[in-house]
Every structure is written in structure tokens, then in C-alpha cells.
């Protein structure tokens, strides 16, 4: 089996249900992620994988279930959600950089306003984070002056500057032109080599095969099967998985 069972999970979602009105999007999902593990969530659109990801940092409130991240019960009313969210970085499909701030300003904002660091310390940390995504020389550029790939790397820097224990990636490369995908994946791979725990929703199968510890296939709000990338991609057990994989690989 995968590394998940061997180590204490850092992310644990239990029996997550999510309803949007009369739509039942998640139908009792369990997910455990071990420290330093990279888990890939795949599945057809509408399978609930993004919703599951967003339940982990409570951008969506699960209708029922339990989410524990780094020992913190995310759904407990007594939990300071703003504090807890600093341990969980998130990267979005559409980057969501603040257009009125420079790259440096984007990274510094939470360091200053959430962690309460002084200007000099926040700036030093922000510059270090930008250096980690190879954009030290773009610190003073505004988002619209950057390519999509660069914007996404700034978004990664904005998240990792807070020194999260877990990083969530919600289709980080699907809004990018093909030639810009490589730079973002390279940064993600470096993060992984530095031991970052990551949960990634993506269709980058090549990256999954090369870097993922575990691939989780979801369909219709449920986990259909999970396993090592080689198992899922070469010998899927379920027809749904097989159909999905062959469809993806045709592209």
C-alpha cells in the first residue's frame, strides 16, 4: 500500500458530504494524506474533486463530516479559521492575484496583516518566497505585467510564504498556455522535493506519474479507487477509472 498508512495523517477528511441545494456533490468521502505525501485527485468534471479540496480549508463548508488538518478540527466552531488557514496554502486555477498590488505586495499582504510581521521582516520573507519560485527579479511587477505561468508562481509564493504544512492545488495549470505549464510544474516538483505535503487536483497525468505518491480517482461524489500512479494509470480496477484514463490519454 501507499505511504499513507505508514505515517500519521496530516490531513484527514472523514465522511464528507456536501450539498449545493438539492445537488449532492460529495457523498461521504474519506481522505487521508500523510506528511510529505503528494496526492493527486483526478476524475471527470463534476466528480466533486475541487469541492473536496475546498472543504479541506473550508472555502466550502461541508454539509457533514469531519476535517482535521495538522491536528486542528477545521469544522469546530471554536477553531479560529483564519489562524488554521495559514497552515493550508491554496493555489487556484485562475491564480487570483490581487491586481492592485505588485508581486511582492501580493506575497507580503498576509505576512503583514495576518502574521503581523514588520515591514522589513515581511519583505525579506516575501522576497525569499519569490526566489523559491524563481521570480526574484519580478518582485515589483504587477500581475498584468506577468505571464500566466509567472502569475501562478507568484500565487504559489504567496501561499508558501506563510510556511503552510499542506498545499492545496486546484487545477493549477489548466488556465495556462501549454508552453507555460512546465515552469509551474517544475516549481511544484521542487516543493515536493523540499518535503511539502500536497493535494493536487489536476489532469497533468505526466506530472502525476512522475511525482505523485498516490492517485485518487473520484466520480459522482465518491472515491472510486486509489493507489500508486502506476496502478491507477496502467491497471485500473474499475471500468469508470479505465474509461476516464483512456479518455484523458487520448488528448
Amino acid at each position: 500500500m501507499s505511504a499513507a498508512t505508514a505515517r500519521e495523517p496530516i490531513v484527514e477528511a472523514r465522511a464528507i458530504h456536501k450539498h449545493f441545494g438539492h445537488l449532492h456533490v460529495l457523498k461521504g468521502v474519506d481522505l487521508k494524506v500523510a506528511e510529505k505525501e503528494l496526492v493527486f485527485l483526478i476524475g471527470p468534471s463534476g466528480s466533486g474533486k475541487s469541492t473536496l479540496l475546498r472543504c479541506l480549508n473550508r472555502l466550502e463548508d461541508p454539509s457533514s463530516g469531519q476535517v482535521i488538518v495538522d491536528g486542528i478540527d477545521m469544522l469546530d466552531a471554536k477553531t479560529d479559521i483564519n489562524k488554521a488557514r495559514q497552515r493550508i496554502g491554496m493555489v487556484f486555477q485562475s491564480f487570483n492575484l490581487y491586481p492592485h498590488m505588485t508581486a511582492l505586495g501580493n506575497v507580503m499582504l498576509a505576512l503583514r496583516k495576518v502574521q503581523g510581521l514588520g515591514r522589513a521582516e515581511a519583505e525579506a520573507k516575501a522576497r525569499a518566497a519569490l526566489a523559491r519560485v524563481h521570480l526574484a527579479d519580478r518582485a515589483d511587477h504587477y500581475p498584468l505585467q506577468l505571464s500566466g505561468g509567472q502569475q501562478q508562481r507568484v500565487a504559489i509564493a504567496r501561499a508558501i510564504a506563510l510556511e503552510p504544512r499542506v498545499m492545496l492545488f486546484d487545477e493549477p495549470t489548466s488556465a495556462l498556455d501549454p508552453e507555460l505549464v512546465g515552469g509551474v510544474l517544475a516549481v511544484m516538483r521542487e516543493l515536493r522535493e523540499d518535503g511539502m505535503t500536497m493535494v493536487v487536483v489536476s489532469h497533468e497525468m505526466g506530472f502525476a506519474k512522475a511525482a505523485a505518491d498516490r492517485v485518487v480517482f473520484m466520480a459522482d461524489g465518491l472515491i472510486v479507487e486509489e493507489g500508486l500512479p502506476a496502478e491507477i494509470f496502467s491497471q485500473p480496477k474499475h471500468d469508470r477509472t479505465r474509461a476516464f484514463i483512456s479518455q484523458i490519454e487520448r488528448h
Binding site: 480549508n57 491554496m90 487556484f92 485562475s94 490581487y98 499582504l109 495576518v114
Partner: peptide, 12 residues
Amino acid sequence: GQWEAARSTGLG
């Protein structure tokens, strides 16, 4: 997405 990005970094 602007709200979500900001809230995900812990801003209130």
C-alpha cells in the same frame, strides 16, 4: 476568487 484567495491566506 479574490475573496477566496485572500481568505485562504488567513485574512478575515
